[in-house]
Amino acid sequence: MIELSNIKKAFNQGKPNEYWALNGIDLTLEAGKVTAFRGPSGSGKTTLLTLVGCLSRPTSGRVRFRGEDISGLPERFLTEIRRQSFGFIFQQFNLIKGLSALENVILPGFPTGRPRAELVASASQLFAQLKLEHRLHAKVEWLSGGEQQRVAIARALINNPQVIIADEPTANLDTALCREFMAILESFTAAGKTVLLTSHDPLVVESSAVHRVVGIRDGKLTDD
């Protein structure tokens, strides 16, 4: 479903502080599976996810998504693919303060032009699935860490994407909440979604919910 061939990514290219975060990655990711990227801090995990998720473009190499080369597409098209096909769960949750949980969740639906009523209906359904109905109208800054993450998950799902990208999703959660998250992961797989996540938490990478673990070090894949 996603193929990476000889991906390289440089930051500040041509400047004295040039840094190659990815040094030639070749990887094929299967649809409907949960893949975890494991590696030390600074190894390039987040950078890899941004490339797959159309948040940035590789310096060289190709990214294919469902057979189509997306590495050279102009920003407008990348945005459209991102909106339709990818849902993001960020480590810092990245919710918009001052808005209610519901408003945050329906935000990715705005550019699609879906009517508000429809967006609110699907959001309510997601809140029910995530056992968060009682927090629908609460401002996000009043929510606990676990609740905030569930709002972030609902937001990632509102446009019904095929791929969920989660960067260090459990870094801010305690063990109980972490287990809860793994359960939610399994529901994604049951729904046929592809999941890419990064983590160095053994609780995550050794969980049965994860189908494949890919190691990264210094911008290169390690064999395991």
Binding site: L55, E75, R76, T79, R82, R83, Q84, F88, F90, N94, L95, I96, K97, L107, P108, F110, P111, T112, R155, N159
Partner: peptide
């Protein structure tokens, strides 16, 4: 910084630059 962050979030979740 907060506004900049929000613009980044909106773009990341699928808002176009034009939006």
């Amino acid at each position: 910084a907060e506004e900049k962050r929000e613009i980044g979030i909106l773009k990341a979740i699928g808002w176009e630059t034009g939006d």
